[in-house]
């Protein structure tokens, strides 16, 4: 578990709105490792989501460097970033972002249509415990179920990394646990390096590694000796 999957050095992101300049990331150096489940903690505006967006190829850095394995992401063009996202990254968002006009199976198919070696949509949905809900539309699913569809969609392509932005943010504790269990299962079974952003400090206990952010800077990194199961997390 010592090979880094992501490496950043001096990573900086500045949002310039004309009147105000905001340093969302102010020179971040960090490593994330293959097979690990990492939790990023920090208050709103601390730079967690910006980091996740840059790692996932959704956004570009103002300065500094990011490597995914041996490939430097900074400096890649739109076309190369699109290919990178398609081939390597799975995303899970706070608001699920399912396509309302597609069923659970079809939402997953959106990914399998464009990836090289995907599992079948049914297989991915079964992994997150949704085998009986394959042909339901998002409006017919609960919030937790929708988020699990989103996870199934993210893992169906067998991504190298799974990036989750507040995956339980919109859920109550019970459904939140179901979602976290799905994430842990994927990390355990497929060995997918997983990064989870959360406000919920309790979730840190299930991670291999916990990274804290404040004001765009890395505050601390700790490694959990003993991880607990999602069901043991006190919400």
């Amino acid at each position: 578990m010592t090979t880094p999957v992501f490496r950043t050095s001096g990573l900086t992101k500045v949002y310039d709105t004309g009147k105000v300049t905001v340093h969302a990331l102010a020179g971040v150096d960090l490593n994330l490792y293959e097979g690990e489940l990492t939790v990023l903690l920090g208050p709103s505006g601390s730079g967690k989501s910006t980091l996740l967006n840059i790692l996932g190829g959704l956004d570009t850095a103002t300065s500094g460097h990011v490597w995914f394995r041996d490939q430097e992401l900074t400096g890649l063009g739109d076309r190369a970033l699109t290919a990178y996202r398609r081939d390597h990254v799975g995303f899970v968002f706070q608001f699920y972002n399912l396509v309302a006009s597609l069923t659970a199976r079809e939402n997953v198919q959106l990914v399998t249509d464009v990836s090289k070696n995907p599992m079948s949509p049914a297989e991915a949905l079964e992994m997150v415990g949704l085998a009986p809900r394959l042909d339901h539309f998002p409006a017919e699913l609960s919030g937790g179920e929708q988020q699990r569809v989103a996870i199934a969609r993210a893992i169906a392509k067998r991504p190298d990394v799974l990036l989750c932005d507040e995956p339980t943010g919109a859920l109550d504790s019970q459904t939140g646990v179901q979602v976290l269990e799905a994430l842990k299962l994927v990390n355990d079974e497929l060995g997918t390096a997983t990064v989870v952003i959360t406000h919920n400090v309790a979730i840190r206990k299930m991670a291999h590694r916990v990274i804290r952010f404040q004001d765009g800077r890395l505050l601390s990194t700790e490694v959990n000796d003993r991880r607990i199961a999602p069901s043991e997390i006190e919400w």
């Binding site: 996202r85 398609r86 608001f95 464009v114």
Partner: peptide, 14 residues
């Protein structure tokens, strides 16, 4: 908007 963002995150090209 958000679906477009999602499709892009999933790797769909412009």
């Amino acid at each position: 908007r958000s679906e477009i963002g999602l499709l892009k995150a999933l790797g769909y090209s412009n």
